[in-house]
């Protein structure tokens, strides 16, 4: 069953249509990649999904509950986790405290922060302030924070941007394993095609705010429209 259903979502900035009627679903345990050139509307879509931006029209459903008009903190409490293109953590707090804040925010008392730091592999540096972390580590801490809330839907905006190539695979493997074991629906946007074709079960391609291709990685790879957009050959 679909965890996330997007129906005819539209958003314009002045005259520019960032989203022009986008519709697709993401099922539980499914990992979907959102691809498209710069300006295709990927980040706009993420910002609409987590409530930072209001859509002009259309519907977003999380297991049947409408997210339209919900503030970001409401969306988060309904079970949507999000990581940002530039990893956002609380710099004045240690890695452990960062995860504790995530747990407290949803009044979760059962789990310990260590559990999640262990999963992303930053146990040794648990008591170091995040301001002192390398970028790759920050991405992991951010992931631990989001996972600690056990979301039903995980949104990752360019999860590997700014990371070294060898780190990318490791982070995505981690995210994919966790998503499968917890049966989380994952939607991530990505420019690195190795990451996309290595980890996505399904790919949605956006161009100028519209879905131009959707399907398995192989189907999308051979889609003529997409080749045209990306490679300029017809």
């Amino acid at each position: 069953m679909a965890i996330l259903s997007i129906r005819a979502l539209a958003k314009a900035y002045g005259g520019v249509k960032a989203l022009a009627g986008v519709s697709f679903d993401v099922a539980a345990g499914e990992i979907v990649a959102l691809i498209g050139p710069n300006g295709a509307g990927k980040t706009t879509l993420f910002n609409v999904l987590n409530g930072q931006l209001a859509a002009d029209s259309g519907e977003v459903l999380l297991e049947g509950t409408s997210l339209v008009g919900c503030a970001p903190h409401r969306v988060a409490r309904l079970g949507v986790g999000r990581t940002f293109q530039v990893a956002a953590t609380f710099g004045s707090m240690t890695a452990r405290e960062n995860v504790q804040v995530a747990l407290q925010a949803i009044h979760e008392r059962h789990y310990k922060a260590e559990t999640f730091l262990e999963r992303v592999g930053v146990t040794e540096r648990a008591d170091t302030p995040c301001a002192a972390f390398a970028y790759g580590e920050l991405k992991r801490v951010e992931l631990a924070m989001v996972l600690a809330q056990r979301p039903r839907l995980l949104l990752m905006d360019e999860p590997t941007a700014g990371m070294a190539p060898e780190e990318r695979g490791a982070l995505m493997t981690l995210a994919a394993e966790l998503a499968r074991s917890e049966n989380i629906a994952v939607l991530f946007s990505e420019h690195d095609m190795d990451v996309v074709f290595g980890f996505a079960q399904r790919v949605v391609a956006l161009h100028l705010g519209e879905v131009i291709a959707e399907g398995s990685p192989d189907e999308v790879r051979s889609n003529p429209r997409l080749r045209e957009v990306y490679l300029g050959d017809a």
């Binding site: 987590n50 956002a88 953590t89 609380f90 804040v101």
Partner: peptide
Amino acid sequence: PFGYALRASRDSPLRASALGIN
């Protein structure tokens, strides 16, 4: 928890609200 949530909101309002903090 209130103090943590407050400091979280200061450090990164974006991150804090995406974690469910008003």
